[in-house]
């Protein structure tokens, strides 16, 4: 299933096309949306200082909420698209969306990478896409948190929109799950935001660190799609 190495560098190390264009586009759209969602979401919880003058002259909080809702819906559409792409895209496109959690080899890889990150052992393995630990953390800390945020976010959005399909599909059931209390959903949506912040911190740190330590262009591969691979090691 691994992509065939297509190009050879002068050192004899093949270049692999890891991230297809739709995946890269999704990544950067998401990164932008999440940044905006964080800023506007924080402001919705703790609004900026009050404005003076006629209310008709301002629409500040309206804009903050509009940006938040728009980015949230872009993220929701992105997740649906990305799930679809994990079926039609290349081998690497399904790594973080549908990880091989039933594969023993995958979990062994997670253990080895954990040891390596704990600096107990030298990083010894090469994976063209993500390493198993990266896959696991992205699947749990990103994919599931993102789904949670989209579902709770749509539930809260449906409250303002009133009766309609979003209210029926998301608001009603989500409120029931959270003890019939909208305030509790707000609190968990808030926790989700901080979980996402933690993911972003770890994600950026790990990418920069790998970029430096592995002498591979990890960061630019999310722009060009190509990554140098000494040896392709499928993760399952």
């Amino acid at each position: 299933m691994a992509s065939t190495p297509v190009d050879d560098t002068p050192q004899g190390e093949p270049l692999v096309y890891v991230y297809e264009a739709p995946v890269r586009l999704w990544h950067w759209v998401n990164a932008t949306a999440i940044t905006l969602l964080f800023v506007t979401g924080y402001l919705i919880g703790s609004p900026p200082p009050s404005l003076n003058g006629e209310p008709s002259a301002h629409y500040l909080f309206g804009w903050i909420r509009f940006i938040h809702f728009s980015c949230g819906q872009i993220m929701a559409v992105g997740i649906i698209f990305r799930f679809y792409w994990s079926f039609v895209g290349n081998y690497f496109s399904r790594e973080i969306i549908r990880p091989p959690v039933l594969s023993r080899k995958f979990w062994k890889g997670v253990m080895l990478e954990t040891k390596s990150y704990a600096l107990a052992e030298h990083s010894s393995r090469r994976y063209v896409g993500h390493n198993p630990l990266a896959i696991l953390s992205m699947h749990v800390l990103f994919v599931w948190v993102a789904v949670f945020m989209v579902v709770t976010g749509l539930a809260l959005y449906g409250e303002g929109e009133g009766p309609g399909w979003i209210h029926t599909v998301f608001t009603g059931p989500v409120l029931l799950l959270f003890g019939n209390n909208s305030l509790t959903v707000h609190t968990w949506h808030h926790f989700g935001m901080w979980a996402m912040v933690i993911f972003v911190l770890v994600h950026i740190y790990a990418a920069v660190r790998e970029d430096i330590l592995s002498r591979e262009a990890i960061i630019t591969s999310m722009i060009s799609g190509w990554r140098k691979a000494r040896k392709v090691t499928p993760i399952d």
């Binding site: 609004p47 009050s50 003076n52 008709s56 301002h58 629409y59 500040l60 909080f61 909420r65």
Partner: peptide, 11 residues
């Protein structure tokens, strides 16, 4: 509500 959308709050 118009004050909410405008960003005018009691502090």
């Amino acid at each position: 509500r118009p004050h909410f959308d405008a960003g005018q709050f009691v502090e």
